[in-house]
Design a protein around this nucleic acid. Structure first.
Lengths: 145, 145
DNA sequence: GTTTAAACAGGAATGATTCTTATTTAGAGT
DNA sequence: ACTCTAAATAAGAATCATTCCTGTTTAAAC
């Protein structure tokens, strides 16, 4: 359970003005699991704050991604999704439900780091590696299918 | 250089009607490098065939993806891109230009396969793993930046 | 050649996202 | 606390990729 003061600090530390909209967007991404779309975030915020502009939420998301407080998660679907986890991680994509789960594994990261140090790619400097692991949850987390 | 007859066969083998539109779309994806968008494909086809409907191209792309003759490539940008390479491979994403290059490496695939066999993920059956390798080409391939 | 379900062209509709503009506000300076 | 101003917001129009709809055409089975 993240405190309001922590959210305030995260925004402030990046040199951004602390606005209610920015606080609510960050809170929404932390609270909503399954890497919400902008739509889900708007819906969440409007429960208590019916007058947020949807354009504002998009703008805030853009700003927070720019300042590395959030990450974008791309999927085969049209809508972008957002991720509040900042530590290095990969994603499990369920083929059946639309669930996306974070996957953290340091041993795997070490393995990849070593591999790409030993096997340089011709004409390309690797900056970051993310795995898209697709498959199926044995117990589905979502009924969107 | 892929022959028209090969393209015809690929379509036919999947039990699809061989239409000029389907042939031109497959040809376009093979010929255009850098994983073209639907837009680029339409532009390419219209050079010789100005009356293709853009809706048709989208429908054809959908059909070809369904039948595993093409793959979708998702990016942070809005437009979907398409990939004619069917063998297992990963993607190099250039952070500066919008170039996406295929990356084939069997040693890497073996490494990943072994890792996930030894390290089962709780409540999840892995079906496929794709790496998004982001970084920079030393010599950029594209001027879109 | 006939037949017909499938595919197509053209254009309207959709839906996520971006843009525009007038208004409001966070926070720096007083 | 009060003022000021650049930055942020609300509202809604605009955009753009993609999908949908409808009447017409066509691939390929017979």
């Amino acid at each position: 359970m993240i405190e309001a003061i922590e959210i305030r600090n995260k925004i402030s530390e990046k040199g951004l003005k602390v606005t209610p909209q920015r606080m609510r967007v960050l809170e929404a991404v932390y609270k909503l699991d399954n890497h919400p779309t902008a739509e889900k975030i708007i819906e969440y915020i409007r429960k208590t704050d019916p007058n947020v502009g949807s354009g504002t939420v998009y703008k805030v998301l853009e700003t927070l991604v720019e300042k590395n407080l959030l990450n974008k998660v791309k999927t085969e679907k049209d809508a972008m999704r957002y991720d509040g986890t900042l530590e290095n991680h990969h994603h499990l994509y369920c083929v059946e439900c639309d669930y996306i789960e974070d996957f953290v594994n340091e041993k795997l990261d070490k393995l990849l780091k070593d591999f790409f140090e030993e096997n340089q790619i011709n004409n390309f400097i690797v900056d970051d590696i993310k795995l898209n692991i697709s498959g199926n949850f044995i117990i589905h987390k979502n009924k969107n299918h």
